[in-house]
Design a protein around this nucleic acid. Structure first.
Length: 296
DNA sequence: TGAATTTGACCTTG
DNA sequence: CAAGGTCAAATTCA
């Protein structure tokens, strides 16, 4: 990753995410305002484009993760637990607590994300304070455990980091059930075909189909996060997306890449401030305060 | 009132 | 034995 340290990389990523999230919020506000005031469609479209651009970028950044090599071993909850539980039942139901084997699974991976949420529905089953950690670790299992899904994850905020979560996924979902979270659909007008949602489980292909249907909102960020981070397939899906910045700037990719290339070898020279300035110039916006550092 | 979360007990692992 | 993972009763929430 060039000469940029991992810490620096994450610091920059975090900073970018904060800024982008804020910008996206403002775009939504602008969008709502324009819509309520029945302003010209072109301005609404501008708001949509800003919003979509932030959404694409956030989605991209959010799926950038570090994968920890699988731990050798294998067995998760042991098959001998049953016999142990039977033994323990003789001592009473309460004694079933804690009858487990410490998990060692090859089916585990780690993500760093500004949010605890992903596209799955989880139920929290425990929380522990961790030695030398400012934050407790939370334990989640898939809400479809009763259907045989053994997916687990552990979430912990990163020490000294207000917004990033360290999430360890232990077992893949077998339920194929994604979280039916509220999609961020602001409206359902035909013009809202440009609106997007971060929390949905439809595929990119479906997205494109939706995009062609003027009645449905365009929904992006549809690749399940697990797939994005654990299997190197996300780039394939991303490649089908249009360059979001083209939509704002009218420039092709070369128009902005020299300014912002945080994931390339020249990452150490990447300048988010440069991005800030360039966006301001391209959009003709003065004093775009939400990119200012005083936010932190 | 059922579902979700919290929390302390209990267990395994190193 | 300390640390961490899981259970389930108690509590909170919708």
């Amino acid at each position: 990753m060039g000469s940029l340290s991992l810490d620096n990389f994450h610091a920059r990523k975090r900073k970018a995410l904060v800024k982008l999230v804020k910008g996206k919020e403002i775009a939504v506000q602008l969008q709502t305002l324009l819509h309520e005031n029945s302003e010209p469609v072109t301005e609404q479209q501008l708001a949509f484009q800003i919003y979509r651009s932030f959404s694409y970028t956030l989605s991209d950044l959010s799926s950038c993760t570090i994968q920890i090599p699988a731990v050798e071993g294998g067995a998760s909850a042991s098959s001998s637990d049953d016999t142990k539980k039977k033994k323990m039942k003789k001592r009473g139901v309460k004694d079933l607590r804690g009858c487990y084997k410490r998990r060692r699974t090859s089916d585990s991976w780690v993500t760093l994300s500004p949010t605890m949420e992903d596209n799955y529905a989880w139920r929290k089953y425990g929380q522990k304070t961790i030695l030398n950690s400012d934050y407790p670790r939370s334990y989640f299992r898939c809400t479809h455990k009763q259907d045989g899904c053994k997916a687990l994850k552990q979430v912990q905020r990163i020490k000294g980091d207000e917004i990033m979560y360290h999430t360890t996924y232990l077992i893949h979902h077998t339920c194929n059930e994604t979280l039916r979270a509220r999609p961020l659909i602001v409206d359902s007008d035909p013009i809202d075909a440009n609106l997007i949602s971060f929390q949905t489980n439809i595929t990119l292909e479906q997205d494109q189909h939706c995009n062609h249907s003027s009645k449905k909102p365009l929904i992006v960020s549809s690749v399940k996060r697990e797939q994005c981070v654990s299997e190197d397939t996300s780039h394939e899906a991303k490649s089908t997306l249009e360059d979001p910045w083209n939509e704002i700037t009218g420039l092709d990719t070369l128009g902005y890449k020299p300014v912002w290339t945080p994931y390339q070898d020249e990452v150490e020279s990447a300048s988010l401030d440069g991005l800030h300035m360039e966006v301001n110039q391209l959009c003709g916006i003065q004093n775009f305060h939400y990119f200012d550092d005083h936010m932190y």
